[in-house]
Design a protein around this nucleic acid. Structure first.
Lengths: 254, 254
DNA sequence: CGTCAACTTGACTCAGGTCAACCGGTGTGG
DNA sequence: CCACACCGGTTGACCTGAGTCAAGTTGACG
């Protein structure tokens, strides 16, 4: 047992036993392929709240899958402005934006105690060349990220503050639901101001929005504990028709 | 010779002779690998201005590389609102956002007479499994797209209308320059209102911005013919420091 | 108990949207 | 060949959603 971000060994959970494997990279791989993937996955001891997984400008060496907890990724300018580019929940990959330049173009920081699986990129690339299903899944996940960013772009360009918040809440709702958790009651691990930053809104605006939403009876918010009380109303606001498959479409919003 | 979108044969230019091959997928492949890539590339007769390369909801079968001309991609809601998600110049790939769902989540339409190379996805995937350099380049280009979308997100969330326009103009400038064209004089193939839509701005605002920019002596605009007269001023506005490598960083903005 | 950060609330401001009128080029059909 | 319509663009007047600033309030934690 050593200090630092040192590997703890492949003792416990392998991908094959991980409850998230149907959301994550192993999705639709067979037993043997998953075993090969397991060979290259490193598991470190968890990050503490506020700790960085990587920082802007660091050399890229691996992509990461969130195993438990949550992360935010953000860029910052010289002037110190910060822009949150995403919140990442268990089963989701981070670091895909660094493949191009081999440098992380943003930083990733734990919002709570968080453990990740480390996927050393060169080995992953190599393995993907041998396992078509893995290559495909990697491309799919990157494609999904592109799509999600475009949805978000649309939201930022054309949607009002209310609509954006509704979309974000539904996005969380869907992402919790996919993991088998309640789609209507969940605890957010980030501050209002971080949500606001992500949506391009001032913290004061967030506060007013939450108030308006709970006055309308659409949700109850006790601090970071959220209950969504009227999904149809939120969907209507977010511009999702009632029957729209909530797992595809705008719901894939990050 | 047949009608419709039929293949015209691999007569003329193969990737190996294409002037864009250092921007496009073949980048950093060797002769032999490029030949294999050439095997699967289809080249159709050009799209006319206004014609669709694909439409929202269509089954995904291939990604496309722009060879000449230009495209816009856009999503539209049931209510008929349209949101431009990108402009695509020669050497750039489109359709990457469809890999995830096997359906195009947006439409792509030619802004002028445009020819594209068709890369049937299953064959491309297969080939990428055999040619590590190809797989890597594909991942790189997708990664770059993710990064560019995030830059754009940042711009939409935190930047003023002026700053956004400056960024977009510099993006075009850089993209023309990479192709060996003038970074300061170019013809845009899209309407002001399409630029505005992309940036989340009303056409009236675009008009006022162009006026303000030319009053300041930063550019001259005669219709769609643009001359950038003061790159440093535009860079300052866009938040790029003078010496910042213009080919990486925010310049990769699409 | 004091401190600090997250969150609220209210008052005011302003960037950019909306609406309406108008201009000039271009295509079209009589 | 001309009249008309249409589209993209421009300009002005006005309005409003959300940012900003300032002053609390609440809650967690040492």
């Amino acid at each position: 047992m050593t200090t630092g971000g040192v590997q703890i060994g492949k003792l416990q959970q392998a991908c094959s036993h991980c409850g998230l494997n149907q959301l994550c990279l192993p999705m639709s791989l067979n037993e043997a392929d998953i075993r090969q993937l397991d060979e290259i996955v490193e598991r470190r001891r968890p990050l503490e709240r506020g700790a960085h997984l990587y920082r802007f400008g660091e050399r890229f060496s691996a992509i990461y899958a969130v195993r438990s907890g949550s992360l935010k990724t953000y860029t910052s300018t010289e002037e110190g402005e910060e822009q949150v580019t995403g919140f990442h929940l268990p089963g989701e990959l981070v670091g895909l934006d660094a493949i191009n330049s081999w440098e992380h173009p943003c930083s990733a920081r734990a919002l709570e105690t968080t453990s990740v699986c480390v996927l050393p990129f060169e080995q992953l690339e190599n393995l993907a060349g041998h396992i078509p299903g893995l290559q495909r899944q990697l491309l799919r996940l990157m494609s999904r990220e592109i799509f999600a960013d475009q949805q978000m772009l649309f939201a930022m360009a054309r949607r009002s503050a209310e609509e954006r918040l509704a979309m974000l809440l539904l996005s969380f709702s869907n992402r919790f639901e996919r993991r088998g958790l309640s789609p209507t009651r969940f605890r957010l691990s980030m501050a209002r101001s971080e949500l606001g930053n992500y949506l391009g809104l001032a913290p004061e605006t967030m506060s007013r929005l939450f108030r308006r939403f709970s006055d309308q009876g659409w949700l109850k918010a006790e601090g970071r504990e959220i209950s969504l009380l009227d999904l149809p109303a939120l969907r209507a606001l977010a511009g999702q028709s009632e029957d729209e498959a909530p797992c595809e479409g705008p719901a894939a919003l990050r």
